[in-house]
């Protein structure tokens, strides 16, 4: 079954209650053709387990590695991805859109 936002936030709560470090990533802005709408969530734990998506798989890897920093440091981060990004060859959106992703830690 494909995870919906309901499953994702429940998983975030369950992981946090189980004592894992957890970060929640949310798509807060999109420009042009973006694969996932504003409000889409990705939840990540300290081991790099994740559920949900913020793009069609294009930038999840980068979001997860940033999320690990957020879990460790506790400060929320705003990430921006797009073709104009100088790392586009690695984590750009092939559809040509741009997205902004807010990553925050869940504090137990």
């Amino acid at each position: 079954m494909i995870a919906n936002d309901d499953d994702i936030l429940r998983q975030a709560e369950a992981w946090t209650r189980a004592g894992r470090g957890v970060a929640l990533a949310t798509v807060v802005e999109t420009w042009g053709s973006a694969p996932r709408p504003v409000g889409s969530h990705l939840v990540i734990d300290g081991e790099g387990d994740f559920l949900g998506s913020v793009s069609g798989g294009c930038v999840e890897g980068a979001v997860i590695s940033e999320a690990l920093d957020v879990i460790a440091g506790g400060e929320p981060k705003m990430l921006e991805f797009g073709v104009a990004d100088d790392t586009a060859w690695r984590v750009g959106l092939s559809c040509g859109g741009r997205i902004k992703v807010y990553v925050e830690r869940i504090d137990a």
Partner: peptide, 14 residues
């Protein structure tokens, strides 16, 4: 996000 906020979100959805 505080865990209590997340818990309210999940409660309200349920």
């Amino acid at each position: 996000m505080k865990l209590e906020h997340l818990a309210i979100l999940n409660e309200e959805r349920a």
